[in-house]
Write a protein that binds this DNA or RNA. Sequence first.
RNA 1: GGCGCGUUGGUCAAUCGGCUAAGACGCCUCCCUUUCACGGAGGAAUGACGGGUUCGACUCCCGUACGUGCUACCA
Length: 507
Amino acid sequence: MDKKVRVRFAPSPTGGLHLGGVRTVLYNYLYARQHGGDFVLRIEDTDQNRYVEGAEQYIYDCLKWCRLIPDESPLKGGPYAPYRQSERKHLYYQYAQQLVDAGHAYYAFDTPEELERMRADLKTDENPNPQYGHATRGRMRNSLSLSREEVMQLLEKQTPYVIRIKMPENETVRFTDMIRGEVHFDTNQVDDKVLLKADGMPTYHLAVVVDDRLMQISHAFRGEEWLSSAPVHILLWKYLGWLDEMPQWAHLPLILKPDGHGKLSKRDGERLGFPVFAMNWTDPRTNESAQGFRERGFLPEAFINMLAVLGWNDGTEQEIFSLDEMVSKFSIERIHKGGAKFDFEKAKWYNHQYLQRKTGAELAELAMPYIMAHTATPTPEYLAKVCELIKERCTLLPDFWEQGHFFFETPEIKELDTIKQKWDENKKAFFQNWISMLESLPSWDHLSIENSFNEAIQAAGLKKGDIMLPLRIMLVGGKYGPGVFLIAEMIGKEDTVQRVNHAISLF
RNA sequence: GGCGCGUUGGUCAAUCGGCUAAGACGCCUCCCUUUCACGGAGGAAUGACGGGUUCGACUCCCGUACGUGCUACCA
């Protein structure tokens, strides 16, 4: 019998939530839902130096916005609480000690300065990064190189120490990654990673395996940057005697910079002008802030859909997936092995697609804050009609103002010259005449308005094509927007007349 | 430097040995539209390289190149 599917997302609360992180959450979530399993959020706050106020709450907020709510978390609790590693501190020591007792780990008393010196001394062009491992541990101060008495003495004197894993020599660690298949490592190449720090906190390496085991995690999804340390984790599972309970690993491909050279970072977003975090993030210490997809005007559905397809597809031509569809169609076998360069244009295309699928009323609700930010206060009904009219030219939420501001305010006429160049007395007379016709128009709807316009054109002997653009510019301010007569209908007789009159006065 | 992982158009990608190599984004042309957009029709653009295996290789194997990750008492 297979054990119950339990997956986990384990971020460290040190800053904004990267889109790659959100994708990891998504894949976790999809896998859990698909298999009727549990999705747990575990906070990996073992590095007290990197603790950032508010970062944990921010993560909850991002997950909530994305609608990827964990079943168990520090906030929600659950049967395996606590879910914050700092609160689990007392749990780890015994396992580290167990490893020491079994000879799979050892005490190391080296100070940071000693470590630095070792690295400096051993550094060569051939080996720019000397490791603390089988080749070097003999010359360091640890319970392998020191006599039993010396070690006891150091311990008694409360000398600060760390516990390191003792990597075996000449072994090959193999495992099957759900995405990459067979992966193997030569243990001579991997160093004696610190498991327990001098402050008594575990490192990531110890904490993941202890917590994954204690929390009964069945499948572990994480970024490819962890692949190299997988042998440490696997050996830990083995040495702790839990190998038959080890989760299945899946190392997700990285999301890379659009212009090459490395994984996508916050800096790239700033440099290239797009968000990298799910939501706005301001670092409370430096006050540096970074924009989020949410604030840029993305819909969470579009954001999620775009991320899902960055590294996965269902094998068909389908590109738009609802969350439910993803849950049923997702499969780890179809996740790509190679990293993907992030394409902001495609992200915007997704948002446009999702915007088109919404009703005017739905869009009104989403766009309202952006409209009100410009101190306009339309009724929801009016905004809904506007949204319906302009949605196909909107990609991001702020576009509803850019594309529709003239429905809420008298626009500044930016294309004044376009009219001015061909302006003459005939046109002036035409508009004056038409306005007076409008005043007595019995019904204010776009068809009636256009009919009267056509009549006036004929009467004046002008060409409709020569008048349409000036009229648009008078009402809109520029050469864009939905049908002019629809606009006139929406803004009403009074504003229409007033805008035309105002324009005439400018020539 | 070492080790791991990867490699189909500019980008995301389909293809599980039969390919005249899908589709999408972006780009270009045209149509629609007396604006902009939407929509429609076209177009340019791809298997890193070299060896095998095979009747047949984008698909399998091996090398090379390139990319990328790790190489902290950070995750």
